[in-house]
Design a protein around this nucleic acid. Structure first.
Lengths: 246, 246
DNA sequence: GTTGCGCCTTGATCCGGATCAAACGGAAAA
DNA sequence: TTTTCCGTTTGATCCGGATCAAGGCGCAAC
């Protein structure tokens, strides 16, 4: 694997330090962390780890996008996680990876040797608490995903995925989700198919259909324009209010 | 809701105290817990809470089986969690329930008022740590479930569900999973369909097919006999070794 | 007994998405 | 420039599971 240590200290973008795990750490706790962390970068398409691999470290995504996925013996693949900056990789207490982790874009991860990290979790409750919050959020996302996989039509699945990505982009760039909102798809058609439990042909056809029906517009293959966000939400089959009302 | 407080102290079967959260609590921590916990019982089929309900407590299943599920406006339903004794209900820090919780059999839950429980999580790290472990296990289960929903055929789905239930029964009763192993289905055909993203007719047909092919035998509608456990596993499409080998 | 009611099974038909196949378009390599 | 290649689109056909419909079985109420 062509991965390299790129920095050992003071990465302002390190999510474990500044956003994910250590948002509430004391300065001396941060110094402890500095001693056991290092960085790795992977090119788009590269595997980061295979299911069954020995995991010597846990990690956190700093930049880029990676996927968690499971593959059956005959090759059928299901994505089970989409890892964005600040998301956590690996699991304290577990020696072997349970899923394949693959870089979708160029990805930099911040690694912590597993043993020291585990002992730190005991001595520094904040880290465990933050990890619990993150895991609960992931569980909620997984459950929303299960509804998509189990009960939605192909069109609803595509609309749901677009809405998920659009919402994330909007919140990231402080952007409005108003009219004419636009964003880039970070995933290939095949990756979208693996996400949604479809074939890439069906993904392509349904995107074309949404375009034909004026729900979205495309610039090239990857850039999506959403003229009316509510119209997109209508296509997802979800409740109009995202569970916000009584 | 015909729910009643059934006991306020010393429930040897309370999973929060003895199995789930407090496995490593000190005696004085247990006493703290006693002050803020109470029990409720629900009949089979009764709703325990609806998505959107205000949650005044978090809880833990003591006896019986309950389901977590999501329903779309038009009635399509997807089960997203199967709650067994010792499983946790609710989420610290969240005011409203995200999913419908329904009793499948008669269910007794052990409730903790949410606020005191949350403050206790801060003062008693063991509880948070145990909760993290449980949540990570649930996340793994959800991801296995996503593969089932997204990529498996109806027959593989049924076989997978039977294998999941069989394995749990086996581990519960210290039972072997050897030849002639038998267990009761805790779910109706409809609940199985909601679990697997199928219709109840397809569930019924595929169970009949597995019976016809000698993979399983039935006693009545609910009791399943598995003559050869490996043959059942073969039908799931999963790797033969459950990821145990290198 | 018989009636009614859940829960389950089975049959006939339909349709959405998979599969097989071909071709397109843009970017990098030659 | 042309070639190659990868990601994508589109078309034709097939099939697994949904849908619609009828009937069976066990059980509790009457």
């Amino acid at each position: 694997m062509s991965s390299a240590v790129i920095d050992l200290k003071n990465c302002d973008n390190c999510p474990i330090r500044h956003r994910a795990v250590c948002a509430r750490c004391e300065p001396d706790e941060l110094e402890q962390l500095e001693d056991i962390k290092f960085y790795r970068t992977y090119d788009a398409g590269q595997p980061i780890m295979w299911a069954g691999d020995q995991m010597e470290f846990v990690a956190s995504v700093v930049t880029g996008i990676a996927t968690l996925s499971q593959t059956m013996e005959d090759g059928r693949t299901q994505m089970v996680g989409l890892l964005l900056p600040s998301d956590f990789i690996g699991r304290p207490g577990r020696v072997r990876a349970s899923y394949d982790v693959t870089a979708v874009s160029e990805v930099t991860i911040c690694c912590f040797r597993r043993k020291p990290f585990e002992t730190m979790m005991v001595t520094t409750p904040h880290i465990g608490q933050r990890l619990l919050e993150m895991t609960l959020d992931e569980l909620d996302a997984a459950r929303e995903w299960m509804l998509i996989l189990g009960r939605k039509t192909a069109r609803e699945k595509i609309a749901s995925l677009l809405a998920i990505i659009a919402r994330r982009e909007a919140s990231l760039h402080l952007g409005k989700t108003g009219d004419g909102f636009a964003f880039d798809l970070p995933l290939t058609r095949e990756a979208m198919a693996d996400y949604l439990g479809l074939t890439l042909e069906t993904v392509s056809r349904q995107i074309s259909a949404l375009k034909r029906d004026g729900v979205i517009a495309l610039e090239g293959k990857r850039r999506v324009i959403v003229p009316d966000f509510d119209a997109l939400i209508d296509e997802t089959g979800d409740d109009a209010d995202g569970g916000l009302l009584s």
